[in-house]
Design a protein around this nucleic acid. Structure first.
Length: 504
RNA sequence: ACAGAGGUGGACAAGUGGUCUAAGUCGUCACACUUUCAAUGUGAAGCCGUUGGUUCGAAUCCAACACUCUGUCCCA
């Protein structure tokens, strides 16, 4: 019988969730669901100096917006709790001490200051096989001294003792076999002076205790993988280790390097999934959600940022992704983030989605801009009419406001230069004719318009743009007669009259 | 510096020894349609990091070199 598939996303709650993090969640989720397994959220809050209030709640909200709900989490609970590492603090020490007793780890009493000066004085200082003999630890101090320091509660850490010249290798699901030489890896801290584990100890212990079968994380972790392999070998048996996959990095669009929040600020696109306000600095960072992205499009875009089915299909629903995703088809190389392509995904989803599926967020957006929807039928018609020209949900505001209220300003300057008495008379004539139209519908409006133009010896094209500006306020929006048909006779005539006044 | 990883048009990708004088999408530009902006359709530009090798044949396999990235915190 094969083991149950269990995967986890283990963020540290230190701020907004970066798209790289969301993509890791997504790949975890897809893999779990495809195999009928469990997706677990574990909070890695072992660094209390980096605690940020609200960050954990933000993670729940983000996953929820994305539709990637965990099966087990601190909030939801589960059979393998607690799911917050700070609450598991007591379970780590014994493993670290076990390693010390077995000679695979050691106590180190060097203070942070001592290490800092060391790093300053020695170029590329590493606490490793070569340097540990000159440091203050249980390998260099005599036993009595160590005992004494320990009993006096002198602050100390536990470091792993990397073996000399040993090949450590493992098979990565994306990269195949990856090998390291143990001599090149430094003696990482496993247990900090405050009794909290570092990431290195915590992942291994927690993945074991939570029976994690596959572990996915960003490529930046690859260099420390040998530490984790060794820990597995020492503690729980390498054969029980989860299968690793190191995901390619998401790179900044210009230049090289990892995409950071700063790049988003600098280049004007979101990097976080949702709005995040730093509780200390009060600095606000916009997210994809608030920028007007549909969660379906956001997920779709993220899935393709590092994975490709092998076909030419680019639009996938979450359900399709669950069916088709495979870790083997995740690229090895990092991908530069492309905001234009991200927007394209959103546009595609808006075009293909029935309007009902984004009616609510758009309604809220309009309300925020002072427009209340009181006619749902009309609202639906408007959405259908304008959705092709909305890339982001926020585009619906300028694209549909004028259906519900007269434009705030009229771009008269676009009409004025070519305006003359002949055109003025045309519109007066038009108003007169429109008064009699009943029922008020698209085709009749257009027909009447063209007839009057012909009678006035004006090309319809010459008065169409002015007409548009009268109704919309500017040079945009769907077909003018569609607009006129929806806003109604009274409003149409009112807007023409109003602009005619302005043109005097 | 050391270690690991990576590489196909401006960006993301398909392609894993012959059907590849390769290429889909985004973006850019042009044209068509048109009632502005979109949508839609058509077209344009652009060659597999470099060098060498294996082979009848290489984007695909091998090697070297260069380049880029990640890591080298009591951060995760």
């Amino acid at each position: 019988m094969s083991k149950k598939i269990r995967v986890r996303f283990a963020p540290s709650p230190t701020g907004g969730l970066h798209i790289g993090g969301v993509r890791t969640v997504l790949y975890n989720y897809l893999f779990a669901k495809q195999h009928g397994g469990d997706f677990i959220l574990r909070i890695e809050d072992t660094d209390q100096t980096r605690f940020v209030s609200g960050a954990e709640e933000y993670i729940y909200e983000t996953l929820s917006w994305c539709g990637l709900e965990p099966d087990e989490s601190p909030k939801k609970g589960g059979a393998f709790g607690p799911y917050r590492q700070s609450e598991r603090k007591d379970s780590y020490r014994k493993y670290a001490e076990q390693l010390v007793n077995e000679g695979k780890a050691y106590y180190a009493f060097d203070t942070s200051e001592e290490l800092e000066t060391k790093r300053k004085n020695v170029a590329n200082f590493q606490y490793n096989i070569a340097s540990r003999i000159e440091m203050k630890n249980s390998l260099t101090l005599d036993q009595d001294n160590v005992k004494k320091l320990l009993s006096e509660n002198v602050p100390h850490v536990i470091r792993i003792k990397m073996p000399t010249d040993e090949e450590i290798k493992f098979t990565d699901m994306i990269r195949g076999e990856v090998a390291f030489n143990s001599s090149q890896v430094d003696d990482k801290v496993l247990l900090k002076a405050d009794g909290m584990p570092t990431y290195h100890l915590a992942v291994v212990v927690d993945d074991h205790l939570m029976q994690i079968s596959h572990a996915f994380r960003g490529e930046e972790w690859l260099p420390s993988a040998p530490v984790h392999i060794l820990l597995w070998r020492y503690l729980f048996g390498e054969e029980n280790m989860p299968q690793w996959a190191h995901l390619p990095l998401i790179l900044k669009p210009d230049g090289n390097g990892k995409l950071s929040k700063r790049d988003g600020d600098r280049l004007g696109f979101p990097v976080f999934a949702m709005d995040w306000t730093d509780p200390k600095s009060n600095e606000k960072t916009t997210g994809f959600k608030e920028r007007g992205f549909l969660p379906e499009a956001f997920i779709n875009m993220l899935a393709l940022l590092g994975w490709n089915e092998g076909s030419e299909q680019e639009i996938f629903s979450l359900k399709e992704l669950i069916e088709k995703f495979s870790m083997e088809r995740v690229h090895k190389g990092g991908a530069k983030f492309n905001y234009d392509k991200a927007k394209w995904f959103n546009h595609e989803w808006i075009k293909k989605f029935p309007v009902a599926s984004f009616q609510l967020p758009v309604e809220i957006l309009l309300k925020d801009n002072g427009i209340n929807i009181d006619d749902p039928k009309k609202f639906e018609k408007v959405l259908e009419l304008v959705k092709d020209r909305c890339t982001l949900l926020t585009d619906f505001v300028p694209q549909s406001s004028f259906f519900f209220q007269s434009p705030e300003s009229i771009d008269v300057s676009a009409i004025q230069p070519k305006w003359d008495e002949k055109k003025n008379r045309f519109f007066i004539e038009l108003i007169r004719a429109y008064e009699f139209i009943n029922p008020w519908q698209h085709d009749d409006l257009e027909k009447e318009f063209k007839e009057i133009a012909a009678a006035s010896q004006i090309k319809p094209g010459d008065v169409l743009l002015p007409f548009r500006i009268m109704l919309v306020g500017g040079k945009f929006g769907p077909g003018v007669f569609d607009i006129a048909a929806i806003i109604g006779k009274e409003e149409t005539i009112k807007r023409i009259t109003h602009t005619l006044q302005l043109l005097k």
